[in-house]
Protein backbone atom coordinates (compact mmCIF):
# COMPACT_ATOMS: atom_id res chain seq x y z
CA UNK A 1 0.00 0.00 0.00
CA UNK A 2 1.77 2.98 -1.25
CA UNK A 3 1.46 6.34 0.34
CA UNK A 4 3.87 8.18 -1.89
CA UNK A 5 2.85 10.53 -4.63
CA UNK A 6 2.35 9.75 -8.28
CA UNK A 7 4.07 11.52 -11.17
CA UNK A 8 3.89 15.21 -10.51
CA UNK A 9 5.07 18.56 -11.77
CA UNK A 10 5.26 21.74 -9.78
CA UNK A 11 5.12 25.21 -11.25
CA UNK A 12 6.05 28.17 -9.12
CA UNK A 13 4.53 31.43 -10.31
CA UNK A 14 5.42 34.68 -8.60
CA UNK A 15 2.23 36.63 -9.31
CA UNK A 16 -1.46 35.96 -8.94
CA UNK A 17 -1.86 36.48 -12.64
CA UNK A 18 0.68 33.81 -13.54
CA UNK A 19 -0.83 31.44 -11.02
CA UNK A 20 -4.30 31.79 -12.46
CA UNK A 21 -2.94 31.43 -15.97
CA UNK A 22 -1.02 28.28 -15.05
CA UNK A 23 -4.14 26.70 -13.59
CA UNK A 24 -6.16 27.76 -16.59
CA UNK A 25 -3.71 26.23 -19.03
CA UNK A 26 -3.63 22.89 -17.26
CA UNK A 27 -7.02 21.42 -16.58
CA UNK A 28 -6.75 19.03 -13.67
CA UNK A 29 -4.03 21.02 -12.00
CA UNK A 30 -4.37 22.25 -8.44
CA UNK A 31 -3.20 25.10 -6.29
CA UNK A 32 -0.94 24.15 -3.46
CA UNK A 33 -0.48 26.55 -0.54
CA UNK A 34 0.84 24.92 2.64
CA UNK A 35 -0.04 21.52 1.28
CA UNK A 36 -1.01 20.27 4.72
CA UNK A 37 -4.37 19.11 3.43
CA UNK A 38 -3.59 18.61 -0.23
CA UNK A 39 -0.49 16.44 0.10
CA UNK A 40 -2.16 14.22 2.69
CA UNK A 41 -5.12 13.76 0.36
CA UNK A 42 -2.88 13.08 -2.61
CA UNK A 43 -0.94 10.48 -0.65
CA UNK A 44 -4.25 8.78 0.08
CA UNK A 45 -5.18 8.94 -3.58
CA UNK A 46 -8.37 10.91 -2.96
CA UNK A 47 -7.07 13.83 -4.93
CA UNK A 48 -5.23 13.18 -8.14
CA UNK A 49 -3.34 15.81 -9.99
CA UNK A 50 -0.22 15.74 -12.09
CA UNK A 51 0.49 19.43 -11.85
CA UNK A 52 0.53 21.65 -8.82
CA UNK A 53 0.63 25.42 -8.94
CA UNK A 54 2.63 26.56 -5.95
CA UNK A 55 1.28 29.69 -4.29
CA UNK A 56 4.08 30.11 -1.77
CA UNK A 57 6.24 32.29 -4.03
CA UNK A 58 3.57 34.94 -4.53
CA UNK A 59 4.49 37.77 -2.20
CA UNK A 60 1.24 39.70 -2.51
CA UNK A 61 -0.61 36.76 -0.94
CA UNK A 62 1.32 36.82 2.30
CA UNK A 63 0.53 40.27 3.59
CA UNK A 64 -1.68 41.54 6.34
CA UNK A 65 -2.46 45.21 5.72
CA UNK A 66 -4.72 47.81 7.25
CA UNK A 67 -6.13 50.90 5.64
CA UNK A 68 -8.79 53.22 6.94
CA UNK A 69 -11.56 50.91 5.84
CA UNK A 70 -10.63 47.38 6.57
CA UNK A 71 -7.98 44.82 7.34
CA UNK A 72 -6.85 42.74 4.40
CA UNK A 73 -5.40 39.30 4.96
CA UNK A 74 -3.67 37.58 2.08
CA UNK A 75 -4.69 34.02 1.33
CA UNK A 76 -1.09 32.92 1.71
CA UNK A 77 -0.73 34.20 5.27
CA UNK A 78 0.13 31.26 7.45
CA UNK A 79 -1.99 30.21 10.38
CA UNK A 80 0.92 30.85 12.73
CA UNK A 81 1.40 34.38 11.39
CA UNK A 82 -2.30 35.00 11.77
CA UNK A 83 -2.42 33.72 15.33
CA UNK A 84 0.61 35.74 16.37
CA UNK A 85 -0.46 39.00 14.78
CA UNK A 86 -1.25 41.34 17.62
CA UNK A 87 -3.75 43.38 15.65
CA UNK A 88 -5.70 40.26 14.75
CA UNK A 89 -5.54 38.94 18.29
CA UNK A 90 -6.76 42.25 19.67
CA UNK A 91 -9.48 43.07 17.22
CA UNK A 92 -10.64 39.73 15.86
CA UNK A 93 -10.29 37.39 18.76
CA UNK A 94 -12.40 34.63 17.24
CA UNK A 95 -10.03 34.51 14.30
CA UNK A 96 -6.88 34.27 16.39
CA UNK A 97 -8.47 31.66 18.63
CA UNK A 98 -9.55 29.62 15.64
CA UNK A 99 -6.11 29.81 14.04
CA UNK A 100 -4.48 28.70 17.27
CA UNK A 101 -6.81 25.71 17.52
CA UNK A 102 -5.93 24.25 14.12
CA UNK A 103 -3.98 21.00 13.88
CA UNK A 104 -0.58 21.31 15.60
CA UNK A 105 2.16 23.97 15.54
CA UNK A 106 4.02 22.31 12.66
CA UNK A 107 0.96 22.52 10.45
CA UNK A 108 0.27 26.09 11.43
CA UNK A 109 3.71 27.20 10.34
CA UNK A 110 3.02 26.11 6.77
CA UNK A 111 -0.77 25.90 6.56
CA UNK A 112 -2.42 28.99 5.16
CA UNK A 113 -5.61 30.98 5.45
CA UNK A 114 -6.52 30.21 1.83
CA UNK A 115 -5.91 26.51 2.25
CA UNK A 116 -7.98 26.47 5.39
CA UNK A 117 -10.90 28.21 3.74
CA UNK A 118 -10.67 25.96 0.68
CA UNK A 119 -10.18 22.82 2.73
CA UNK A 120 -11.69 19.67 1.35
CA UNK A 121 -14.66 18.24 3.23
CA UNK A 122 -14.12 15.18 5.41
CA UNK A 123 -15.77 11.82 5.97
CA UNK A 124 -14.67 8.49 7.45
CA UNK A 125 -15.55 6.81 4.16
CA UNK A 126 -13.49 9.33 2.22
CA UNK A 127 -10.33 10.13 4.18
CA UNK A 128 -9.02 6.61 3.69
CA UNK A 129 -6.44 4.94 1.51
CA UNK A 130 -7.04 3.84 -2.05
CA UNK A 131 -7.10 0.20 -0.88
CA UNK A 132 -9.68 1.01 1.76
CA UNK A 133 -12.01 2.88 -0.53
CA UNK A 134 -11.80 0.34 -3.30
CA UNK A 135 -12.36 -2.49 -0.83
CA UNK A 136 -15.41 -0.77 0.56
CA UNK A 137 -16.75 0.34 -2.81
CA UNK A 138 -16.00 3.90 -3.78
CA UNK A 139 -18.49 6.49 -2.61
CA UNK A 140 -20.29 9.30 -4.31
CA UNK A 141 -17.64 11.87 -3.47
CA UNK A 142 -14.88 9.87 -5.01
CA UNK A 143 -15.28 7.65 -8.05
CA UNK A 144 -18.47 5.95 -6.87
CA UNK A 145 -22.17 6.65 -7.01
CA UNK A 146 -23.59 5.82 -3.59
CA UNK A 147 -23.15 7.72 -0.37
CA UNK A 148 -22.40 5.24 2.42
CA UNK A 149 -23.53 7.71 5.02
CA UNK A 150 -26.94 8.33 3.51
CA UNK A 151 -27.43 5.72 0.81
CA UNK A 152 -30.94 6.90 -0.04
CA UNK A 153 -29.87 10.46 -0.71
CA UNK A 154 -28.35 11.91 -3.80
CA UNK A 155 -25.74 14.10 -2.26
CA UNK A 156 -22.54 13.83 -0.29
CA UNK A 157 -22.71 14.83 3.37
CA UNK A 158 -18.98 15.04 4.06
CA UNK A 159 -18.39 17.72 6.67
CA UNK A 160 -16.46 20.93 6.27
CA UNK A 161 -14.14 21.09 9.26
CA UNK A 162 -11.96 24.14 8.73
CA UNK A 163 -11.70 26.23 11.87
CA UNK A 164 -11.22 29.71 10.42
CA UNK A 165 -14.37 30.00 8.34
CA UNK A 166 -16.92 30.41 11.14
CA UNK A 167 -14.76 33.07 12.81
CA UNK A 168 -14.53 34.96 9.55
CA UNK A 169 -18.23 34.57 8.89
CA UNK A 170 -19.28 36.21 12.16
CA UNK A 171 -16.73 38.95 11.58
CA UNK A 172 -18.34 39.75 8.25
CA UNK A 173 -15.43 38.84 5.97
CA UNK A 174 -15.47 39.39 2.25
CA UNK A 175 -13.13 37.65 -0.12
CA UNK A 176 -11.37 38.50 -3.35
CA UNK A 177 -11.39 35.81 -5.99
CA UNK A 178 -9.13 36.01 -9.00
CA UNK A 179 -9.77 34.30 -12.29
CA UNK A 180 -8.63 34.80 -15.85
CA UNK A 181 -11.43 37.36 -16.08
CA UNK A 182 -10.15 39.46 -13.19
CA UNK A 183 -10.92 39.82 -9.51
CA UNK A 184 -14.36 39.70 -7.92
CA UNK A 185 -15.33 40.34 -4.33
CA UNK A 186 -18.05 38.37 -2.53
CA UNK A 187 -19.12 37.83 1.04
CA UNK A 188 -17.34 34.77 2.43
CA UNK A 189 -20.67 33.07 3.04
CA UNK A 190 -21.19 32.90 -0.70
CA UNK A 191 -18.07 30.79 -1.11
CA UNK A 192 -19.78 27.78 0.38
CA UNK A 193 -22.45 25.39 -0.82
CA UNK A 194 -24.20 22.69 1.24
CA UNK A 195 -22.83 19.81 -0.83
CA UNK A 196 -19.94 17.70 0.43
CA UNK A 197 -18.79 16.86 -3.06
CA UNK A 198 -18.80 20.42 -4.37
CA UNK A 199 -18.80 22.68 -1.38
CA UNK A 200 -16.88 25.58 -2.89
CA UNK A 201 -18.51 28.04 -5.26
CA UNK A 202 -15.24 28.47 -7.12
CA UNK A 203 -15.00 27.95 -10.83
CA UNK A 204 -12.15 25.69 -11.88
CA UNK A 205 -8.94 27.67 -11.61
CA UNK A 206 -10.28 30.49 -9.48
CA UNK A 207 -7.93 31.68 -6.80
CA UNK A 208 -8.77 33.04 -3.40
CA UNK A 209 -6.51 36.08 -3.13
CA UNK A 210 -7.37 37.80 0.10
CA UNK A 211 -10.05 38.50 2.59
CA UNK A 212 -11.26 41.75 4.04
CA UNK A 213 -12.51 42.37 7.52
CA UNK A 214 -14.39 45.46 8.64
CA UNK A 215 -12.35 47.50 11.08
CA UNK A 216 -14.66 47.66 14.05
CA UNK A 217 -16.21 44.32 14.65
CA UNK A 218 -18.10 43.40 17.80
CA UNK A 219 -16.26 41.25 20.38
CA UNK A 220 -15.96 37.69 19.19
CA UNK A 221 -14.78 34.27 20.25
CA UNK A 222 -14.30 30.76 18.89
CA UNK A 223 -14.50 27.33 20.50
CA UNK A 224 -14.35 23.79 19.20
CA UNK A 225 -14.93 20.34 20.62
CA UNK A 226 -12.47 17.60 19.89
CA UNK A 227 -11.21 14.57 21.73
CA UNK A 228 -7.65 15.73 22.11
CA UNK A 229 -6.05 19.04 22.94
CA UNK A 230 -4.34 19.24 19.55
CA UNK A 231 -4.29 17.74 16.04
CA UNK A 232 -8.00 16.97 15.91
CA UNK A 233 -10.38 18.63 13.49
CA UNK A 234 -13.45 20.09 15.16
CA UNK A 235 -16.35 17.72 15.76
CA UNK A 236 -18.17 21.00 16.03
CA UNK A 237 -16.76 24.51 16.03
CA UNK A 238 -18.62 27.67 16.90
CA UNK A 239 -17.81 31.33 16.43
CA UNK A 240 -19.86 34.06 17.99
CA UNK A 241 -19.74 37.84 17.58
CA UNK A 242 -21.81 39.65 20.09
CA UNK A 243 -22.31 43.33 20.76
CA UNK A 244 -24.18 44.25 23.90
CA UNK A 245 -25.92 47.44 24.78
CA UNK A 246 -26.43 47.65 28.47
CA UNK A 247 -28.17 44.56 29.70
CA UNK A 248 -29.34 43.62 26.21
CA UNK A 249 -28.03 42.07 23.04
CA UNK A 250 -27.32 44.60 20.38
CA UNK A 251 -26.22 42.28 17.63
CA UNK A 252 -25.49 38.57 17.61
CA UNK A 253 -23.93 36.46 14.94
CA UNK A 254 -23.19 32.76 15.20
CA UNK A 255 -21.43 30.54 12.70
CA UNK A 256 -20.65 26.86 12.77
CA UNK A 257 -18.18 24.43 11.30
CA UNK A 258 -17.72 20.68 11.48
CA UNK A 259 -21.41 19.89 11.43
CA UNK A 260 -22.44 20.48 7.83
CA UNK A 261 -20.88 20.33 4.41
CA UNK A 262 -20.28 24.05 4.67
CA UNK A 263 -19.54 26.47 7.40
CA UNK A 264 -22.57 28.69 7.84
CA UNK A 265 -24.05 31.62 9.67
CA UNK A 266 -26.94 30.59 11.85
CA UNK A 267 -30.04 32.22 10.42
CA UNK A 268 -32.60 33.96 12.59
CA UNK A 269 -30.45 35.62 15.23
CA UNK A 270 -31.67 39.15 14.41
CA UNK A 271 -34.72 38.98 16.69
CA UNK A 272 -32.44 38.52 19.67
CA UNK A 273 -31.39 42.16 19.39
CA UNK A 274 -32.75 44.20 22.23
CA UNK A 275 -33.32 41.21 24.48
CA UNK A 276 -31.42 40.31 27.63
CA UNK A 277 -29.31 37.17 27.79
CA UNK A 278 -31.49 35.04 29.98
CA UNK A 279 -32.37 31.37 30.15
CA UNK A 280 -35.21 31.88 27.73
CA UNK A 281 -32.97 33.40 25.11
CA UNK A 282 -30.32 30.75 25.62
CA UNK A 283 -32.93 28.06 25.30
CA UNK A 284 -34.21 29.52 22.04
CA UNK A 285 -30.65 29.77 20.81
CA UNK A 286 -30.10 26.16 21.65
CA UNK A 287 -33.15 25.18 19.62
CA UNK A 288 -32.10 27.37 16.74
CA UNK A 289 -28.65 25.84 16.49
CA UNK A 290 -29.86 22.29 16.94
CA UNK A 291 -32.36 22.85 14.17
CA UNK A 292 -29.90 24.24 11.68
CA UNK A 293 -26.95 21.88 12.09
CA UNK A 294 -27.07 18.72 10.03
CA UNK A 295 -24.35 16.43 11.30
CA UNK A 296 -24.33 13.04 9.63
CA UNK A 297 -22.42 9.82 10.35
CA UNK A 298 -19.25 11.19 8.79
CA UNK A 299 -17.14 10.96 11.94
CA UNK A 300 -16.56 8.26 14.51
CA UNK A 301 -18.21 10.43 17.16
CA UNK A 302 -21.97 10.24 16.86
CA UNK A 303 -23.87 12.77 14.80
CA UNK A 304 -26.19 13.53 17.67
CA UNK A 305 -23.27 14.39 19.89
CA UNK A 306 -21.99 16.91 17.35
CA UNK A 307 -25.43 18.52 17.31
CA UNK A 308 -25.61 18.80 21.08
CA UNK A 309 -22.03 19.97 21.40
CA UNK A 310 -22.56 22.69 18.79
CA UNK A 311 -25.48 24.04 20.77
CA UNK A 312 -23.65 23.75 24.08
CA UNK A 313 -20.61 25.63 22.77
CA UNK A 314 -22.85 28.35 21.36
CA UNK A 315 -24.64 28.85 24.63
CA UNK A 316 -21.40 29.05 26.56
CA UNK A 317 -19.68 31.43 24.15
CA UNK A 318 -22.67 33.75 24.08
CA UNK A 319 -22.77 33.86 27.86
CA UNK A 320 -19.05 34.39 28.10
CA UNK A 321 -18.89 37.19 25.53
CA UNK A 322 -21.84 38.87 27.12
CA UNK A 323 -20.26 38.68 30.55
CA UNK A 324 -17.00 40.08 29.21
CA UNK A 325 -18.87 42.85 27.41
CA UNK A 326 -20.76 43.74 30.55
CA UNK A 327 -17.62 43.69 32.66
Amino acid sequence: MSTSLGELRLVQPSTVKEAVAARFEHPGSRFIAGGTDLIVNMRRGIIRSDLLVDLSGIDELTEITTDGLDVTIGAGVTLAALAHNSEIAGRYRALAQAAEAIAAPGHRVIGTVGGNLCLDTRCIYYNQSEWWRSAHAYCLKNRGDVCHVAPQGKRCHAAFAGDLAPALLVLGAEIDIASAQGVRRIPLSELYVEDGKAHLALADGELLVALHLPLNPPPSGYAKVRLRGAIDFPLAGVAVALAASGPNVNSLRIALTGTNSRPFLVAGTEPFAGRPIDEKLLHELDRLVQKQVQPMRTTIASANYRRIAAAALTRRLVKKLFAEGAA
Binding site: R44, G106, V109, I110
Partner: peptide
Protein backbone atom coordinates in the same frame (compact mmCIF):
# COMPACT_ATOMS: atom_id res chain seq x y z
CA UNK B 1 2.43 7.76 9.76
CA UNK B 2 0.87 8.05 6.33
CA UNK B 3 1.05 11.83 6.30
CA UNK B 4 1.08 14.71 8.73
CA UNK B 5 -0.23 13.02 11.85
CA UNK B 6 2.65 12.06 14.14
CA UNK B 7 5.50 14.55 13.94
CA UNK B 8 8.23 11.88 13.79
CA UNK B 9 9.48 13.48 10.58
CA UNK B 10 9.79 16.97 12.05
CA UNK B 11 12.74 18.99 10.73
CA UNK B 12 13.50 22.68 10.75
CA UNK B 13 12.94 24.70 7.63
CA UNK B 14 14.46 28.14 8.10
CA UNK B 15 14.24 27.58 11.82
CA UNK B 16 10.60 26.48 11.96
CA UNK B 17 9.64 22.93 12.92
CA UNK B 18 7.52 21.32 10.22
CA UNK B 19 6.52 17.80 9.22
CA UNK B 20 8.75 16.83 6.30
CA UNK B 21 6.35 14.11 5.12
CA UNK B 22 3.82 16.56 3.73
CA UNK B 23 6.37 18.92 2.25
CA UNK B 24 7.58 18.59 -1.32
Amino acid sequence: CDGGECGACTVLIDGEAVPSCITL
